[in-house]
Amino acid sequence: MVAIETDSLERRFGSVRAVEELDLEVDEGEVFGFLGPNGAGKSTTINMLLGFVPPTAGSATVLGHDAATESLAVRQRTGVLPEDFGVYERLTARKHVRFAIDCKGAGDDPDALLSRVGLADAADRKAGGFSTGMRQRLAFAMALAGEPELLILDEPSSGLDPNGAREMREIVREEVDRGATVFFSSHIMEQVEAICDRVGVMREGRLVACDSIASLKRDLDVDSRLVVEVDRVPEGIREELLALEGVSAVRIDDGEIEVALSRAGRKTAALDAVERSGAAVEDVSTEEPSLEDLFEALTTESEVAP
């Protein structure tokens, strides 16, 4: 079953196309990472999915509801953690969560939700004195009210320390185990790689890639790196390595030779070249492309792929 589906979804602001011909499917029960640089169209897409911004063209369906004409039904079944969440400074954390519960017509215990996100001791504190991380935890507790079928999380780990980010990931996994779908937008590639089943990458309003991270790493010609530690750096080794097929760059620093290899490059050929030069190889390691490498490749090319 499909939780989110868009068909040629577009949004224009005057002559600017913030989102252009977006065709996207997010399956029920998956964690989908929605990535892109600032201004790529991510927030505009989220606002259209929630019915806050009407599309200029195309359509979006969320949990079987038309996002433009049935937005209230969408929001009743969706938990949202927005970017730059604003609190009511004079209200306590408990009252914030109680408000979210009442809006959903749910029967949750606000203290249980606050405990789940690590705010049990702050339940009676006014939110105006909360740190950025505490406000983020509070917004997450409110998003969890009513056991939503869909969670839309926009930069959910913003302001959280590493322990808070880890706790957030654990809660997301618990929600997926419960049967929820998670639509997850973030600039922190480590968080995305740790938790997402698939990712979609936006650039200049268009979806330029959509697949599992493993498939993107396999299909995109993004450099891996071979790092060779030697007893000495032979003269002319940089030129010899650069002459090999698939070698895109060579960095030499204090007895370490780092070779960037495209998909056409062979690590064994580069290592053989170093050994033939007469240097003694003391250690060898490899670094495969990270999601950050893929993100850079997809969002900095000279033209957006059709």
Rank of each mutant, 00 (worst) to 15 (best):
V2S: 14
D7L: 08
E10W: 14
G14I: 08
S15C: 01
E20K: 10
L24W: 15
G29L: 11
F32P: 00
G36E: 08
G39I: 03
K42P: 10
M48E: 11
M48K: 13
L50W: 12
A60D: 01
V62F: 04
L63G: 01
S71T: 05
G79P: 05
D84Y: 13
F85W: 01
V87W: 02
Y88A: 07
D102N: 13
G105I: 12
G105E: 07
D109K: 07
P110D: 12
D111C: 02
A112Y: 05
L114T: 06
S115F: 03
V117G: 03
G118T: 08
L119D: 03
A123H: 03
R125F: 02
A127H: 07
F130S: 06
F130V: 08
T132N: 08
G133D: 06
M134D: 07
M134E: 12
R135H: 06
R137A: 03
M142H: 00
A145E: 12
L153I: 12
D161S: 00
D161A: 04
P162L: 07
N163A: 13
G164R: 13
A165R: 15
E167L: 03
M168T: 15
M168E: 05
V172Q: 09
E175R: 15
F183C: 02
F183G: 01
H187V: 02
I188R: 15
E190P: 02
D197N: 14
D197M: 04
E204P: 00
V208S: 06
C210E: 12
L216P: 04
L216M: 14
R218C: 00
V222R: 06
S224F: 02
R225A: 13
V227E: 15
E229C: 01
D231C: 11
V233L: 09
P234H: 13
L242Q: 13
L242V: 10
G246E: 12
S248C: 03
V250S: 09
V259M: 10
G265V: 07
G265N: 09
K267P: 00
L271D: 06
R276W: 00
V281N: 12
V281I: 15
E282H: 03
E282Q: 14
V284G: 09
A297M: 00
E301C: 00
S302T: 14
P306I: 01
